[in-house]
Amino acid sequence: MSGGTPDPRADGARPLGRRRLGLALVTLLALTGGGVAVTALVTPSSAPAGDADAEGLPPATAPVTRGDLTDSSQRDGTLGHLGERKINAGGPGGTLTWLAPTGSVVERDERLYEVDGEAVRLMYGEEPMYRTLKTGDEGKDVRQWEENLAALGYTGFDVDDTYTARTAAAVKRWQKSHDLKQTGTVGPDRIAFAGSAVRVKAAGAETGGGGSGGSGAGRIAPGDRLSTGTPVLTVTGSERVVTFEVPASEATSAKTGTKVAVTLPDGTRLPGRVSAVGRTATAGDDPQDKTPKIDVTVSFDDPGKVRGVDQSPVTVELTGETRRDVLSVPVNALLALPDGGFGVQVVENGTARDVRVELGMFAQGRVEISGDGLRAGMKVGVPS
């Protein structure tokens, strides 16, 4: 000051102006690793002449509030179906005479396709149907086939790893129900296994160029000749799911079981939870963003309510930790104190004072604070 008169506020006691917020931003980013949305802190480095800050008061205030604070984040996702696999012809070959329609859901014992007018039906199980099962055979595939017979209501045999005469008798009853020759044996020309009900995505194998509903190089149609191993259908699980990506550094925000809310293209908001998290990080397809990311799958709490075209864009809101009954202020109310740490500028009775605070959770554009003398309803300085 002119004349050498010392400024009575030069010892740091005066309220900190909004010009200190640039420093607060840098410090906050260092503390949080850049993971907090604090863009509201970016303000001019000095107040213009005549601004309220020149008189020691901030240009605007916001209240300190008490309530619950939830750490949530949003991700862009894609609506789809669980898993994808091919169903290959397993019999000796013949002419394809019928295919389950694209988009249809095929359940246990229903037709997948027909060769020479004879149906190949879906059964549930992880083991492939690689041989003709007959009396005396043993193995996991035997148990899997018997589990399906039992699920369809056939009785009189033990569900185990051995194909007995009683198993053959149940198979004959199953064959009679479908007007088949009653041999008591069954092979890949009659059944194909998948883990559950399947949704038909496309005919043949999607080998590029066609996409769902297009004319990819691997497509087949009734009238085509099949041989053993020919891809007949590309299928997915029947369950509707959402997939999205998170940076590998933020993988803990999407642990298995994490609750989410999914906003569908029509605006419907449905609850769900993370059902699977990838174990391998990849750079992804975006040439502008090579950040390693992890795939995340979300299952809906009520799949029957899901509506929307396959591959539609959706928004996923991840619900993280909730802090109950805490004080919070807008993030841009924070000030960097000269001796380190953070504070807020409390405005009362026309005066302002700096109050040191301890920081807690950052969420929804706010930050949890605690400190001496703080209470709900207090006004704190914020940029205009």
Rank of each mutant, 00 (worst) to 15 (best):
211 G>D: 09
130 Y>P: 04
262 V>N: 00
216 G>H: 15
136 G>W: 12
237 G>H: 02
219 R>K: 13
171 V>L: 10
200 V>G: 04
176 K>V: 15
156 G>N: 05
214 G>H: 12
224 D>Y: 11
255 K>A: 15
225 R>N: 08
195 G>I: 00
155 T>E: 12
264 L>K: 01
145 W>N: 03
219 R>I: 14
251 A>D: 08
194 A>I: 05
188 P>D: 09
200 V>Y: 00
222 P>F: 14
174 W>L: 02
178 H>K: 11
259 K>P: 10
216 G>Y: 11
189 D>H: 14
230 T>I: 12
211 G>A: 10
175 Q>W: 06
203 A>H: 15
152 L>Q: 14
139 G>R: 00
125 G>S: 09
140 K>G: 15
173 R>A: 09
162 T>L: 12
177 S>N: 10
225 R>H: 13
216 G>Q: 11
211 G>V: 07
139 G>F: 06
258 T>G: 02
264 L>I: 12
258 T>I: 07
165 A>M: 09
148 N>V: 00
199 R>P: 00
127 E>G: 04
228 T>D: 04
133 L>F: 08
215 S>K: 13
203 A>E: 06
252 T>C: 01
174 W>P: 02
188 P>L: 06
194 A>K: 01
146 E>R: 05
149 L>A: 06
255 K>D: 14
138 E>F: 05
264 L>V: 00
244 F>C: 00
197 A>G: 04
206 E>D: 13
144 Q>L: 05
228 T>C: 02
136 G>L: 08
248 A>H: 03
131 R>K: 10
235 V>L: 04
246 V>D: 00
255 K>I: 02
149 L>H: 09
154 Y>F: 15
186 V>A: 05
237 G>V: 04
221 A>Y: 15
235 V>F: 08
142 V>F: 02
190 R>C: 01
124 Y>C: 02
210 G>W: 13
234 T>H: 09
186 V>H: 09
164 T>H: 12
196 S>Y: 08
227 S>R: 13
179 D>K: 15
240 R>H: 07
167 T>K: 03
254 A>N: 10
226 L>A: 10
187 G>H: 04
130 Y>A: 13
159 V>A: 00
223 G>S: 06
135 T>A: 14
233 L>S: 01
200 V>T: 07
163 Y>N: 07
231 P>L: 13
199 R>W: 07
217 A>D: 11
177 S>H: 07
209 G>S: 11
152 L>A: 11
254 A>L: 06
